[in-house]
Design a protein around this nucleic acid. Sequence first.
DNA 1: GTCCTGATGTGCT
DNA 2: GCACATCAGGACA
Length: 205
Amino acid sequence: VERPPGRILPARFYARDTLTVARELLGARLCRRTADGVWLWGRIVETEAYVGETDPACHGAAGLTQRTRILYGAPGRSYVYFSYGMHYLFNTVTERRGFPAAVLVRALDPEGGLERMERNRRGRGGFLLTSGPARLTEALEIGAAENDVPLQGGDLQIRDGAPFPVRIACGPRIGIRKAVDRPWRFWLAGNPYVSRPLGRTGRGT
DNA sequence: GTCCTGATGTGCT
DNA sequence: GCACATCAGGACA
């Protein structure tokens, strides 16, 4: 069994402007060590920024609560939450303490541990393996236990990767109803694992 | 291909 | 109560 390549991104990487972090996470590797010690990872190809109390789509817009206290906490940690009664979504906390912001990871280009990921996805491979925020957490076995943990070691890490030689595209965030005008979704143009290439509309895949 | 719906937990209003 | 940063599967065309 292999180990993921690249260098772990330090906490200070995340302690910056969230839009910058969202762009610079493209190409980095989200790495997960399962309970039985298997490494699963992929290159991040799609992200979204959620920025502060003034961003209506950010959970931080609700202010400091039990749920959002992680967003107000230290940058470089995970924020995993349960959505629609069935899915877990993975975010990295950004900016300084006291400023609630995060980057949602929406898609991965799978790189290591493909067989295990496909099993986790009940046989679905190819595009359906990791092309969506809930798909990738299921593939990588990320759940409630991975909420509020550091990303600089242990079983959940983000490591750097050589930049993909493609354009970074941006557009409106997916699946929200507030602040739809802010183009805070970023993706690698042409990558086959991007959940919704521009031009496709509506819900579903 | 598009459209629609069901599954379902959690936190805030 | 209800909104919600989703996905899968079925009904059509």
